[in-house]
């Protein structure tokens, strides 16, 4: 029984290791520098909204937020339009070719980002698209499409074959079966896959660092730049920027948790 108590205490400790730093950051976002830079951590303080207001009023932050949203949502949109049909074809027509394709799609994840970032930069410079949202969308769609394919294959496989057969008997062609039956039935699993691809590009840093200079800068870049303002790091503002940057992925937490549950529930069958 003692072992059980220790085990439970360890679990609580681990949860604290996850939550404490985040709560601390959230608190710091509402502190003035005098409360923030104290040798003894301060838990009671008078909250200020200056940091948040400063971050939201900066044009660079607002521009980056806009860029991030446009670029990531467009890339996820491309991943949806191109990736889901491909995933369906791989799931429903298992043969040697589709297996090779599946491996090819996975192997794209093996590419070290630095190996494609340098040439992409030169290519976009030559084409005159360097530092534009368009070039970022195209580059990111490589990530979103491959991840969307990889993660939606199990979703389509979980659609019962009988349902599709029944639709076929009712006179649906193969395309109608995909759009009217497979897509709606697998929708929940597919949402999770798309959410994952969104989080990946939202958090992406290295490609953005190399492929943008000012116009198409994304939010992670602007946040990282704030820490490089010499000795007087505006920690309160920085914490506020971190909070802003973390909100979208955390909003998707429930969706992604469900996605994992579903994926493993399916495996059990």
């Amino acid at each position: 029984m003692i072992a059980r108590v220790i085990g439970k205490a360890t679990l609580v400790f681990c949860a604290a290791c996850v939550l404490m730093p985040l709560l601390w950051t959230l608190m710091n976002a509402f502190k003035v520098n005098a409360d923030l830079l104290t040798p003894v951590p301060k838990f009671v303080f008078e909250p200020t909204f200056d940091n948040i207001a400063y971050v939201l009023s900066r044009r660079s932050v607002f521009g980056a937020l806009y860029n991030s949203l446009i670029i990531c949502l467009s890339a996820v949109g491309i991943g949806l339009v191109l990736g889901l049909p491909a995933a369906y074809a791989i799931a429903r027509y298992p043969n040697r070719i589709t297996r090779e394709i599946q491996f090819f799609v996975l192997s794209l994840r093996f590419l070290p980002p630095v190996a494609i970032a340098i040439p992409f930069m030169v290519i976009w410079l030559n084409l005159g698209f360097y530092d534009t949202r368009l070039s970022m969308i195209v580059t990111y769609s490589l990530i979103t499409t491959s991840i969307a394919i990889w993660l939606s294959i199990p979703g389509f496989q979980s659609v019962p074959k009988e349902v599709e057969e029944a639709a076929r008997v009712d006179g649906y062609g193969p395309y109608a079966v995909f759009f009217r039956v497979a897509l709606p039935v697998a929708m929940k699993a597919l949402m999770g896959a798309l959410a994952f691809s969104f989080v990946l590009v939202w958090n992406e840093f290295m490609l953005a660092l190399m492929l943008t200079a000012s116009n198409a800068k994304t939010l992670p870049l602007v946040a990282s730049e704030m820490s490089q303002q010499g000795l007087n790091v505006p920690w309160g503002i920085l914490n506020a920027a971190v909070v802003l940057l973390s909100i979208p992925p955390l909003l998707l937490l429930g969706l992604l948790g469900n996605f994992l549950n579903r994926a493993f529930a399916q495996k059990r069958r």
């Binding site: 996850v18 950051t25 989080v199 958090n203 992925p249």
Partner: peptide, 30 residues
């Protein structure tokens, strides 16, 4: 617990880096 433990991987790495960089700050870190 599963939901809580999913949080760190969803955080942008830039954010995780800052959170801990400040936590390890030599003078003010927690």
């Amino acid at each position: 617990y599963c939901l809580i433990f999913l949080i760190p991987v969803l955080l942008p790495r830039v954010c995780a880096a800052f959170v801990w960089k400040f936590a390890f700050h030599p003078l003010y870190g927690i």
